[in-house]
Design a protein around this nucleic acid. Structure first.
Lengths: 145, 145
DNA sequence: CACAGAATGTAGCGTTGGCTACACTTTCGC
DNA sequence: GCGAAAGTGTAGCCAACGCTACATTCTGTG
């Protein structure tokens, strides 16, 4: 049998399905985190800044911001910058903490700084609660020892 | 300054850009790996099996297989199953090795088996060469010690 | 204050990756 | 060897996320 390499169908399908939905949430997480950073750093988050930082056109950024608003994560009035709802702030906090943890773990494993930052950008969106907890434990033990 | 939390614009844009393209390649990697597994396990990879395992409709699978063919990763004749080109085989090998390494590292960090398998499904696509090398080193040292 | 230039917003297009519905082969049982 | 079931393929739809091009609003300077 190939059970060792091939998980049962339903299990595998569930895994892929979860990975897919995580991916769809990833972009919104990035936006929310960046908006939060910009607000903290300069008091305002303007679409053009967001677009520049993400490396997309301002039109793309505006369209995505519209989706964030639709999901209750952000608010904005025309020509007045973007702000986060409490929901958005909460998400931003979680995302930022997770990002830092992932980078820290990668560095602890011996990944060079820049590579860690780069890969964390993609990895963080797929780190579930159990994995996150294990990461935290690992760092604590290792740091404490 | 907020340099500690906010990387310079071009750097950040480059990171996000890379993460975005990695994401677009991810699906193809999953398909190629699965096709390789199915071929090995049963000698054939049929669209319906692929669709079931990925948790998508057969129509979606067929459309994506078409893209794989366009990219020179797979070949297929109508009603005759899907096969990999040498290019596809090579990719499948790399992807499989990377997947196993990621799962092993997660487990070594104390992540429960099922969570490790689940998260690895998403994480693996964002693990670059430098990170991969660090993972291998980490496992070797840890295993050897 | 007017107007040029920057920022913002809108419209329209393309690709990807989902889906359902329908048509066509293949295969298998009788 | 025929017909039903299963598998395969096609068509058409939708939403997300990119883009460029154009319209609008804001802002700051002369």
């Amino acid at each position: 049998m190939a059970s060792d390499t091939l998980p049962a169908e339903p299990t595998q399908a569930r895994r892929f399905g979860k990975a897919r939905s995580a991916q769809s949430a990833a972009l919104h997480e990035d936006y929310v985190e960046l908006i939060s950073d910009l607000l903290e750093a300069g008091g305002e988050a303007r679409p053009t800044d967001i677009a520049r930082r993400l490396g997309v056109s301002h039109a793309t950024a505006i369209k995505t911001i519209g989706r964030l608003k639709r999901e209750g994560l952000a608010i904005s009035k025309p020509y007045r910058g973007v702000f986060l709802t409490p929901l958005g702030e909460a998400l931003a906090g979680r995302v930022r903490a997770r990002h830092r943890l992932v980078v820290a773990v990668l560095c602890a494993l011996g990944v060079p700084r820049e590579a860690a930052e780069q890969d964390a950008e993609g990895i963080e969106h797929h780190v579930g609660d159990a994995t996150l907890a294990a990461f935290a434990r690992f760092l604590k033990e290792r740091g404490g020892a």
